[in-house]
Design a protein around this nucleic acid. Structure first.
Lengths: 166, 166
DNA sequence: AATAAACGCCGATGATTATTCGGTAAACGG
DNA sequence: CCGTTTACCGAATAATCATCGGCGTTTATT
């Protein structure tokens, strides 16, 4: 099982705060979670070392930086042996256009988020997907027309708070 | 159009670097992009002010923090008038379980990433989706079994580099 | 119950960093 | 050609980081 690290109330406050602003200075973070800077820093480092905090990343408004086309691509493989999944994933991991790849339960196998410069670029990726050695039976790309709600962090309160009745 | 800010080579280096590690100190960032700390800081602040950098967020290994169920939910609305979209979006924006909502081209209208504590919790959200006043014709949730490739930043080089032939 | 070990915290410290402030040089525009 | 803008640098100060020893509480052990 995962979860060797027990997340207490203070850890949770730290996580929630860093999820809102990862560049917060340790001093202000410490204030917000009611700890001394040294104690706070120690906790953050532990959270990082134990891998609960994986990394800190900058969130871009990509349309302001460059033009692109984003797609959600459903993938169905020809066969479902372990080797078939591995082969597909190994290939997909090398393509930077594939931002993420989710294994899905249901009639499709994978759902991928893909980003390309333009339709020509996607067409090229599309050809790649069709190559026989990938084991893809069929795939279907949905163009993302708009992001009507963007990811802004996990609702930790909602996920954790109601933990059993004492 | 968006893009009033012209992103030059140096800006691009800054963005790429911050995308890898948002908590990088300004001094080290300046070294990496071959600028003085003051010049570098000024550029970063401009990038933030112009909104190219939206925010800095901590990336969690959520399974190490709590248990949950993630789903991708396809949504089809009954009608496609502007008011129908607005009504639906207003409702789902209030639900913290909906991490993001993408407007999709094709036979479905929206694709939502949803996170719940457990199946009971999703069942409850499911009931919410079925309420008549949301205008949802039908929806279909796919459980996310695994994240085989996780988002780790945009491939800026791939998106920007080949900009026209001089 | 007593002791020991471990834990988490605090506050003080020197080292590091952030941020501001002139000042300079190149690019731009009339 | 000259004033304006832009982007940069380097130095100085204010703020922060990050380490350390020490303290009190909890936990485990005997």
């Amino acid at each position: 099982m995962t979860r060797r690290h027990h997340v207490d109330e203070t850890d949770l406050r730290i996580l929630k705060r860093l999820q809102l602003d990862a560049r917060l200075s340790n001093v202000r973070l410490a204030e917000d979670v009611h700890l001394s800077p040294s104690a706070c820093l120690e906790r953050v480092k532990t959270l990082e070392k134990d891998g609960l905090i994986r990394r800190y990343l900058a969130d871009f408004d990509l349309p302001k930086i460059c033009s692109f086309v984003m797609l959600m691509v459903e993938v169905i493989l020809e066969n479902h042996r372990e080797a078939d999944f591995d082969r597909f994933l190994a290939a997909i991991r090398k393509r930077e256009e594939v931002l993420e790849c989710l294994k899905i339960g249901g009639r499709i196998d994978y759902l991928m988020r893909v980003i390309c410069r333009d339709i020509d670029h996607y067409n090229e990726l599309s050809d790649f997907m069709s190559r026989g050695d990938l084991g893809v039976e069929k795939f279907h790309g949905h163009v993302v027309l708009a992001t009507d709600k963007a990811f802004e962090g996990y609702p930790l309160d909602l996920l954790i708070e109601p933990r059993g009745q004492p």
